[in-house]
Amino acid sequence: MLNFKNIFITGGAGYVGAVLVKRLLDHGAKVTVLDLMLYGDDVIDPNPNLNMVKGDIRDQALLNKLIPGHDLVIHLACISNDPSFELNPNLGKSINLDAFRPLVEISKSNNVKRFIYASSSSVYGVKEEPNVTEDFTLEPLTDYSKFKADCEKILSEYQSPDFTTVTIRPATVCGYSPRQRLDVVVNILTNLAYHKREISVFGGDQLRPNIHIEDMVDAYIALINADDDKIAGEIFNAGYVNYTVLQLAEMIKETIGDDVKLIQTPTNDNRSYHVSSEKIFKKLNFKAKRSIQEAANDLKVAFEKGLLPNSLTDEKYFNIKRMQSVELR
Rank of each mutant, 00 (worst) to 15 (best):
V43Q: 03
I211P: 01
F236H: 00
L246K: 11
L87K: 13
A13K: 04
Q159C: 08
Y194W: 06
E134V: 08
S109M: 15
A288H: 03
V217N: 02
L20P: 01
T172Y: 09
K127P: 05
Q206T: 15
K22T: 14
D45T: 12
E214C: 14
K113E: 06
N81W: 07
E327T: 13
A118W: 00
Q247E: 15
V275L: 03
I168F: 13
I67Q: 07
D162P: 03
T164N: 05
L223C: 01
I95V: 14
S80R: 02
F85I: 11
V301H: 07
I95Q: 03
E250F: 11
I44D: 01
K316L: 01
L20S: 01
P140M: 00
N81F: 04
N310K: 13
K253H: 04
G14L: 10
L103T: 09
V326D: 00
S145A: 05
D183M: 06
V104M: 13
I74C: 07
Y124W: 09
N6K: 10
V326A: 06
I280Y: 00
K108T: 15
K261E: 03
P68F: 07
D59K: 10
I168R: 03
K230H: 05
Q264V: 10
V53Q: 09
Q159N: 11
D259M: 15
G40Q: 11
G175M: 07
Y176G: 05
Y176L: 06
K287Y: 13
V185A: 14
E294M: 15
S160G: 04
D82Y: 11
L63I: 11
F147H: 14
P170T: 13
I221N: 13
K305C: 12
I9K: 01
I256D: 04
S311A: 10
L189V: 04
Y39P: 00
S156I: 14
A18P: 04
D229M: 00
K5P: 08
F4G: 02
D82H: 09
G14W: 02
T172I: 14
E128S: 15
F85L: 10
T164W: 03
G125W: 01
P161A: 13
H274C: 02
L207S: 03
K261D: 02
P170D: 14
L34T: 11
I95A: 02
G239A: 00
I67C: 07
E152M: 12
R208S: 12
N64H: 06
N90M: 15
L72W: 04
T165Y: 01
